[in-house]
């Protein structure tokens, strides 16, 4: 079932990942670049993308990473995921 959690309208290039993302520690909060070498988006930036990924995982502080990349203008344009996450 489709759910819209934060609504808006954007246009951009899809960046698709098959791996879940632990935003804390694996996404640089200034640049939006993924630092986990085991991740399929390793070294890629999620900035200004339409990020499509299975789910967030791991730390509760990932919420602050998302807030930080937004404040630092490195956030994705939109995020689409399969499974609910509390981020």
């Amino acid at each position: 079932m489709k759910k819209i959690l934060v609504s808006g309208k954007v246009e951009g290039v899809v960046l698709k990942s098959d791996n879940p993302i632990n935003f804390l520690g694996t996404v640089d909060k200034k640049t939006g670049i993924i630092s986990d070498e085991n991740h399929d988006l390793y070294k890629k930036s999620i900035k200004d993308t339409v990020l499509v990924f299975p789910s967030g995982v791991g730390s509760s502080v990932g919420a602050y990473t998302i807030y930080s990349i937004k404040s630092n203008e490195s956030a994705p344009l939109a995020m689409i995921c399969k499974k609910w996450i509390l981020l």
């Binding site: 804390l24 502080v61 602050y64």
Partner: peptide, 12 residues
Amino acid sequence: SGVNYNTIGDAG
């Protein structure tokens, strides 16, 4: 959570 300055940064 969200206490360590290393994790939440200036924005936090």
